[in-house]
Structure formats: structure tokens, C-alpha cells
Computed example of a mutant assay.
Amino acid sequence: MPQNDFQGIIPILITPFDAKGRIDTDSLQSLVAFNVDAGVHGLGVALGSEIFKLTDAERDQVLETVVTAVNGRVPVVMNTSAAGTDIALAKSRRAQDLGADALMIYPESFMPTGPEAAFSLFDRLDAEISLPIILQDVPQAPISPDIVRRIVLHASRTAAIKVETLPTVPQVHRMAEKVAGQLTIIGGAGGSYMIEEYRRGARGTMPFCSQPEDFVAVWDHLTAGDETAARNRFDRTIMAINRLGAQNGDLFYHLHKQILQRRGIIATAHVRAPTCTVDPVTQSEINAILDQFYG
């Protein structure tokens, strides 16, 4: 199994569907190869994969396909968050059985009951699961740096925290001040602030999977100490796409799937319902981006 320090570029895979909305495993295998060949440091199956729209059997199908296609070359991270502790544990055991290398989990958020419930969840994960855990700090289930420090005491397998509570840049800074010596700090939100987060202690990011070569290039420049080159590459290839993807609801699914379809990586850009409606003006903006970057 690869080293699980979780530093670097760990894209979250989209789930490709065919025209009838069924999982397209051929396109998913192609997507994995595209990202691994670009030099990514890991791959994730998470909210950006539309996992909340998948049945349990489909979640298994996606994870099995990814694990087989990766074939041990990079760590595979599976999000096993759930509204109930027992469900999260069951999903985590299943992910472990299917070959995931790490879990990513945010505390129960549907009916939050305070930090003690989070401690209980991570206590049980530590006792019952042998995989490393990436905490996820998301707007619907924020985790303060002080709570993270306490979770680490409860769960020795905790290896990293993905910070997505808005605004992410100061939250990364606060988290790094408290736990950078204990956990790897990972940025999220599509990698939009990866340079600013890196300055403040983040040592990885989880962007979308449509531009892996660009994110890897930016990362390589950052770790080499060439922030000017990192900024130039980011502004030239990533910024406009991320800005458009954040324009409305879950438009990012449509945008990144259309990019991958244009690049010949997946067969269709189908997004499962519920999803935002892409109006003609927005589609023209997507088309302009596709023509500008991918001919």
C-alpha cells in the first residue's frame, strides 16, 4: 500500500454516468488512469463524486472500480460520513473490505448533538477500523481546531484534516497553528485557494479531477519554492474554471464533466438529479471555457 501522508494533490473523482444515468465503469477506469498518469498523489471518492446520489450497491461499484484501476499506485480515500454513527461505521467497514486506503469523515450533521458525539464516533472508528482517517471540516459540520486536537487524542488513526469551513484561508491558518505538528492540513473547495492555503500551512489539496496536470504543476512549483511560477500556472489554467464552477449551486458538476467529456476521458456529462439547471447563458460560458482551453 502507498505511503499515506496525504500530502500533495488528491483529486476527488466525479462519477461518470451513461446517457441513462447508470454508472459508466469504462469511463471511470479512464478517469483514474488520466489522473494517475498526471502524477497525482492520491484519489478520493467523496461528495464531489455525487456519492449522496448513489445506492449502497453503486457506492461499492464505484469504490471497487477505482481500487482495481489504481492497483496500489496511489492511496484511495473513501468518504464514509453518515447521519448516524452506526451507519458511518458500517460504511467504513465496507470501504475497508473493498480496499480503500483511508477514510474521510465529517461528524454527524443532520441532527448534531455536540462534540461529545464526535468523540464517540471517532473512538469507535479507532477501535473497529484499521485505516487512517482524514477528518473533514465542512460548513454543515464545522470542527474547531480545539475540537480537532481532542479528536486526535481519541483517535490515534487520525492522519489529516481537510479544511472547507468558509472562509477557508483563515481556517487553514487557525488549524495549522493548533495541529500542524500532529496532522497534515489539506485544503478543499476545489483547490481555489491552494496557494494561499499552502502559505498558511496546508500541505495538500483535494481539487476536482478534470485538470490534474495543472494542479500537480502548481504543487511542484510551490514545493520547489517558486511561488511566481505557481501563481502564473494557476491563474492561466485553473482560476477561470474554478470561478465559473462556483457561480451557481452544483454547476461545478456540469462544468467538470463537460471538460472531461471534451478531453475524451469520459463518454457523457450526465449529472444525476437533483441538480441545477444550466441555462443557455451559463452553457455559453461553459462552451467558451471549453473552446479556450481544450479546442
Results as ranks from 00 to 15, higher is better:
residue 88 A to C: 12
residue 272 R to M: 05
residue 45 V to G: 02
residue 286 I to V: 05
residue 49 S to V: 04
residue 153 L to A: 14
residue 123 D to V: 04
residue 94 R to V: 03
residue 270 H to A: 08
residue 102 A to I: 04
residue 272 R to Q: 15
residue 294 Y to D: 06
residue 251 L to W: 02
residue 140 Q to F: 15
residue 148 V to T: 01
residue 81 S to R: 02
residue 225 G to E: 09
residue 9 I to V: 15
residue 239 M to G: 09
residue 286 I to D: 01
residue 171 Q to I: 14
residue 100 A to E: 07
residue 63 L to E: 03
residue 60 D to I: 05
residue 140 Q to L: 15
residue 186 I to K: 00
residue 199 R to H: 05
residue 102 A to M: 08
residue 73 R to T: 10
residue 104 M to N: 07
residue 2 P to Y: 11
residue 237 T to C: 08
residue 244 L to Q: 10
residue 272 R to E: 10
residue 162 K to R: 13
residue 263 R to C: 07
residue 41 H to G: 02
residue 23 I to R: 02
residue 138 V to G: 02
residue 191 G to A: 02
residue 152 V to L: 13
residue 277 T to Q: 13
residue 166 L to T: 12
residue 214 D to P: 00
residue 10 I to L: 15
residue 260 L to W: 04
residue 94 R to H: 07
residue 293 F to P: 00
residue 25 T to L: 14
residue 185 I to N: 02
residue 262 R to H: 07
residue 70 V to N: 11
residue 237 T to F: 14
residue 166 L to V: 09
residue 214 D to H: 04
residue 63 L to G: 06
residue 104 M to K: 05
residue 156 S to R: 12
residue 217 A to M: 04
residue 273 A to M: 14
residue 130 S to F: 03
residue 4 N to E: 05
residue 168 T to Q: 13
residue 54 L to E: 05
residue 123 D to M: 07
residue 63 L to A: 12
residue 35 N to E: 09
residue 244 L to M: 13
residue 136 Q to L: 06
residue 47 L to Y: 09
residue 176 A to D: 08
residue 143 I to H: 05
residue 290 L to D: 03
residue 205 T to G: 01
residue 25 T to G: 04
residue 256 H to I: 02
residue 240 A to L: 15
residue 164 E to P: 05
residue 176 A to R: 08
residue 129 I to A: 01
residue 14 I to N: 00
residue 253 Y to G: 09
residue 52 F to Y: 13
residue 239 M to C: 09
residue 182 Q to M: 14
residue 226 D to K: 08
